[in-house]
Structure formats: C-alpha cells, structure tokens
Nucleic acid binder design. Structure first.
Lengths: 408, 408
DNA sequence: CCCAATTTGTTCGTTGGACTAACAAACTCC
DNA sequence: GGAGTTTGTTAGTCCAACGAACAAATTGGG
C-alpha cells in the first residue's frame, strides 16, 4: 500500500520484470546456497526454462557461480549455484573519536585484514591517510588473488550524514560540518564510496549480513559515547527528511529535573545511559558536560573498568550499572511504543555486562510497554567484538547489489 | 534500497509492467485532472501510443472517464481525462467513546450525508445498528443516482487494530478485546470493509485525500482523549510488528515525578497534554485517572470550555493551555528527533486555540530539536471541523485503488 | 544389459505488452 | 485552401514471460 510519488516515480519498461525476477533469484541463491536451478524454479513458482535465462544473466555478470554437481537420490544430479563472494573485496572504514579502523573483507563480511590508526580530524589529511592505506591493502591482499576486484568502500562516521550525496552534515565528535567525504575519497581512490552514520549502518549490517529472517522490521540501538537508533520499517531503513531520524538519545525521560545533556537540553536518554553518564554516576557525580569530560580524563576511568569492578563485586559499580540499565529499559520501551519493531538489537560496551543488566532492562520495559506482545519484544545484544560498525560499512557496499529494484 | 523478503516476495509476471504503468497513469490523472492523453504521455515520458492502451484499460474498468474537449492555442483540441469519483460511493464510520458517526461520501471525500448516534458498546448490537443505517443511506442516496455503486466501507476505531484481518485487538475506550469487526460488518453488508485505528487513519487521509505534495514522509498527531501518532515513512504507513506503532502518547517526559497516566506509568506525554489533563490542570488538580474522570463528569467542563474561557481572558485557563502547549512542543520534538518527518499535522480540539498555543509549541521544539532544519519542521493544524477521522475512513477505501502494486 | 521412471536443465514456439513510427484527425494561421 | 501544429490511433517490431517438448543424466527393475 505504498503511495506513488507523482514527482519522481519510476516507470516500468520492457526490462522491468527481468530486473525484478533476476534480483529475487539472486536473493534466493544467497539465502539457500548451494541451490539447484530446479529448486530455485520451485521456490519462485516458475518454469525451469525461465530460471535458465535468469541464471545465465547472473552468471554472465558474475554475481553467481556454478559449484559442484552433488548426489541426488534419483534422477539427473543438479549443478549447485552459489553467490560469488570470495573474490569480491570490500573496504570498510570506521571513523571513531579516538581511533579509525580500516578493514578489508569479502562480499559476505568475512574479514581479510584489519588495521587502525589515531583518528586525524582534519578532513583532507584523513582522506589522504585513508587513501594510502586502502591502496596498500588492496595491493597486498587484492593483487595476490587472481581476479579479485574491489567492489566499493563503505565509511561509517559518528554524526549526521546525507547518504545520497555522501556529505557529513554535522559531526560534533569530529568537529565537522558539511564535509564532502564521499566526493573526496571517491576522487582519491577511483572507487564507489558510500558514507553513513553509525546506528543506521549497524542496522544495515543486521539487515543485509545478519540472520536472514525477520530483517524487514527491527531497530538497532547503539549505546556508547552517544545513544542512537537505526530504524528499519517495511524492509527499508529510515533516514528522515533531513537525515536526523533515529536520535532517540535525545528523548527527554525527565524534562523537569534530569541531568544536563551535551545537546543542551535536560534529562535526555543519552544523559542517563551513555558511557560517560554511567562512569560519572559511578564517580558519584551528576553529568555536567565540560566538567565530567575533564574528570574522566583525569581519572582515566572507562566503562569497561566500571563493568569489570561490578563483576568483581564493587557495590557502587553495580549500582551505577543498574541505574543505567533501568533508564536504558525505559528508552527501549520508548522505541517499542513508538515504532513497535519485531526485535531490537543493542550494540555497545554495555553488552559486556548483559547478563547483569538484562533483568533490569526487561523489568523496565514490562512496566512501560502497552501490550504483553510489545513487552515481549526480543532484545538481542551484539558484542563489540563483532565489529558492528565495520560490518555496517560492508553492508553499505553490499546492499545496493541485493536490493529490490526501485519501481513505481 | 528495500530488502527483498525471501519468504513472501511477489514475482514479476508478463502483466506487471502494465499494472505498474496503469497505476502511475491513474495517479497522474488524479493529480493533474483534467489532463489530456498527450500531456500524460509527456509526464510519463512515453509515446502517445502506449497512453492510448493504458487509458483504454482505465476507461474499461471505469476508474477514469473522458470529459470535455477543450480549446487549445493551435492543433487538434484534446479530450480531457478525469478520475471517476462522483458516482462511486464510500461509507465512512467513526466509532468514538460517546458518539458514532456514519457518513456517505464520494470517492474523493466530498460528503453526501452525515448522521450520528450514541455509541453502542456491545459489538453485535453496534454492527446490527451500523448495517441498518448503512443500508438505509445507500438506498436513499445511492438508489437515486443511476449507476452509483458503493466501493466499500471504512471504519475508524479508538484502539489497536490488526488492519490485515480487521480485528480490533484492544480498545480501552470501548472495552473491546479481539473483536472481529471486519468479518461481522462485511458479512452483514456484503461489501468490502476496512478497519483501522484513529491516528493511522488520519495519516492515511492526509496521504490520499490531502494536499498532493510531500505525502510520503510525515506524521499526524491526534490530541484528544488520548495522544497518538500516525507515521508515514517512505510513502508507507507504519503499523508496527504488533500493530502498536505510533503510541507517542506514552513516551515518558518525566518518569521521575510526572503525573500518573491511564496506562499505569507516570509522566507520559498523554498525561500532560490530553484533553483530560488540560481540563484537570485548569481545575487545579493533578491528573489522577479515576478521581479526575469523576471530577470532570461532575463539573461538566470540557476542553472547549477551557479554550473559550482562555480567549475571554481567564488567566487560569490560559495558564493551563500554555502548560499543555509546552509539553505538546516537547512531544512534537520527540517525533522530530526520532523519525524526522517532512512535516507534522496536528489534529484535535486544541487546534481551536492554535494561534494562542503555536508560539509556545515552536519555542519548546526549538529548545529540543537537534538541527536548525529539524527545528523548522512545519507543524500544521487540522481543525476538527474537517472531520479528519471520517476522512481517514474514506482513505481506507480509496487507498488500495491508487496504491502502487506490490512487487519484488 | 536394456528399458522405464525420475529429475535436471535447455530449447523452441506462443503471447502480452513496451516501444517506434507512420498516419489520421482536428484545429489555426496565413 | 494549403502549410503547420498538436492530438490521438494503428500497425509493426522486439523483448521477455510462459508453456511444452526435448535432451541429459541418473536409479532401479526385469
């Protein structure tokens, strides 16, 4: 029941059915590989003749390859189909406040090489450094493989990004405003470049590289320096009219007497549950942006330390985490009541203490969710070891290849 | 960039391009009527030959008719096309706490007849009463017109609705749980019936019957007994995994010391800005569900009275409205920060005092929005006289006729 | 060992509809 | 009244879905 936009519709041409069916076939191969042509025909409910034509096209363009002929109980033995991933390289870049990560992976997200360096905040210098590292990585790892080719570069940035143009509109952490990151990197590397902000990229990674079920309707909440959410509704990511959707971190949970937030308002979810907030609570201080940053810098204390001390039995650390968990639960209840996703994935350092915080989170959700079904919304942690942001960067490159053609 | 759902995709057939282009043509006629075939061809960027074929099909099925031949500066004079609306009837039903409205309208939302009666809360009795009234309306107004035919019935209900099955999952106001409303009405009337909850229906009305621009990305906030939001993202309405999306009324704005809400939690947006909350604030009482309902019943005071007294200069009434406006602004800022819509339409009795409350709302939004663009999100009032919920009921019937075909 | 049965994958003819170009219709202007 | 212009139709071409027949490759039974 989508409305047709009469300003920028896409008319169907003679080639449209082929484009759609080709893409469906590709997705089915991806999900059920290895799969035979005959099985594909059954799943698509079409004749085997058409599958031959569709697969021929996929073979020609190299999205798919023919694997082994396998045994069958009776009849002619089928030649299995696979999506080509191993010799298609993707460069993933994760720019963070302190460190920047560069990863080389295959098309399905399997890592090949990973390196990191201190983030350079000057855009031009950062682009130069990245270009050099990417070229070196591709030369050493790409050159060795016979036909390996780089399909593109995905960049994840903290802050607001106009995905269409690849411009970083505003990033407080990097001190950027209107930086044409895609144009600069694409020019330096002569490769397709995609730029996206962190929570949306993490959601895209779940959607395109995660479990294959139920990926059309969920939320991804990142809890680290900030708190953001990537929303996926009706199989599509929500970017918002001005690329600022998903800022659940600045929902006021206590607009009257809450702590001051970096955004200038009071009582934001982020002011209760960011790593900064948790650590400063442990130190017995209310969050006060400038003062707290200084304090943390002086003590050198991180969220990982607080979690470690809590599991060692430090009562004050436990109390600080409990309080964070309680507010996090309230924040998750807000997501549940407003967009009602099939599930919510939570990423960030707090997942290291998941067993400890999850009962508190669930209790807070139960107290606020409007129906029993909503209260039972699965909340799934994703550990930081999975490199969710780098996987998101890979998804930026992979998604356009598997996405449904835009039509009507 | 939509992901293809490998469980329930829709394969493209030989007839798919025709279905898509036919629908695009229909939408263009609807938006630019009266329009000639040649103009349609230019707008769709296809040959006039194809337009002839497409329009022939639309004419045959009766979605479109040929109107007058109009003058042109030179060349052959074009025969104009219009969408057929006048002899296609729609029944719209709005079930509210105290009154139920039944309206007969044409396909474009122009009212033909409107009546109302005291709501019957027993489902079977309500269905019987509705069926009788609808039959009578169609007999008197439909019979007179030669070929007038009823295209369907739209029903708007306060509470959660499973739109797919037409079941009312839960409605606190009516005291319903799992009522098969669509099945019952469709059986009694032998007409297609669509059921939806109020905020989503209001959003659908904006989308399909409102201004034709920018209808693919906005929010509709209803402020009356409850506070709910209908979200439209990427041209599609957001229903949520369990049909509970859009419940922004229960976002906690003050989880620590806020007023008690009907939902059981404290400090919900609804507890600050519902009509009940505003009136009880005027009476100098904090909201306390059971007690307040009784109080309002005893005094007989309504939100309309408070607004009237405020415009007469009653300082206490003004203060009560100001406070509601302030919290409403914070609530709108939550919508802006989380889904970042192109604009937000506000419906409800409060729109009668719009000139008074809008500066306060805008100030609250400005204080909380994260970017200047987001702070400038247009907030548009829709007066209750427009019957937004009945228009929503009409949209339920009209939408499937104009929607893009589901493909891929 | 050969033939029936079974399953996979290809080929070929039909058909619907997008696309193109020519043509008929209807009008204005000179 | 003919040239020019614009609208709408028609006839022919071609791409791809569709269906059916066929070739390929295997198992099992007589």
């Amino acid at each position: 029941m989508r409305k047709i936009d009469t300003q920028r519709f896409v008319r169907a041409t003679r080639a449209t059915p082929r484009a759609i069916n080709r893409q469906i076939a590709l997705n089915l191969v991806r999900e059920h590989q290895p799969i035979s042509r005959a099985d594909l025909a059954r799943r698509m409910d079409i004749g085997r003749g058409m599958v031959t034509a569709l697969v021929d096209e996929l073979l020609r363009e190299g999205s798919v390859y023919e694997g082994a002929v396998v045994d069958a109980p009776r009849g002619r033995r089928p030649k299995m189909l696979h999506v080509r991933t191993r010799d298609r390289l993707v460069v993933a870049i994760d720019v963070r406040f302190s460190l920047t990560y560069v990863m080389l992976s295959d098309f399905d997200g399997a890592p090949i090489a990973l390196e990191s360096f201190d983030t350079i905040t000057a855009p031009a210098a950062l682009v130069a450094e990245l270009a050099g590292r990417v070229r070196r990585l591709l030369a050493t790892h790409g050159g060795a493989r016979s036909a390996a080719r780089c399909e593109g570069v995905g960049v994840v940035v903290p802050g607001m990004v106009d995905h269409r143009t690849g411009r970083v509109v505003y990033s407080p952490q990097l001190g950027w405003r209107d930086v044409e990151l895609r144009a600069a990197l694409a020019h330096a590397l002569d490769l397709p470049v995609h730029v996206e902000n962190a929570p949306i990229a993490c959601a895209l990674a779940q959607m395109w590289l995660g479990q294959r079920h139920d990926a059309g309707d969920f939320a991804y909440m990142t809890v680290s320096d900030g708190v953001g959410v990537g929303l996926v509704v009706n199989g599509e990511v929500v970017r918002g009219h001005g690329n600022t959707a998903g800022e659940f971190g600045h929902v006021p949970l206590n607009a009257v007497s809450g702590p001051r937030c970096l955004c200038g308002a009071t009582g934001c979810l982020e002011a209760y549950t960011s790593n900064l907030a948790t650590v400063s609570r442990y130190l017995g201080q209310e969050l006060a942006p400038a003062h707290t940053r200084q304090l943390l810098h002086d003590t050198g204390l991180t969220i990982a330390d607080v979690i470690a001390r809590a599991s060692d039995g430090d009562a004050r650390a436990r109390a600080a985490l409990d309080e964070t968990a309680r507010w996090l639960g309230i924040g998750l209840a807000v997501v549940i009541n407003t967009v009602n996703p099939a599930r919510i994935v939570v990423g960030g350092e707090i997942t290291a203490a998941w067993d400890h915080v999850v009962p508190i989170i669930r209790a807070a959700i139960a107290a606020r969710a409007l129906t029993t079904a909503a209260a039972a919304t699965p909340i799934v942690p994703e550990p930081a070891s999975e490199h969710p942001r780098l996987r998101g960067a890979i998804a930026l490159v992979a998604a356009p290849v598997y996405a449904a053609p835009a039509v009507a």
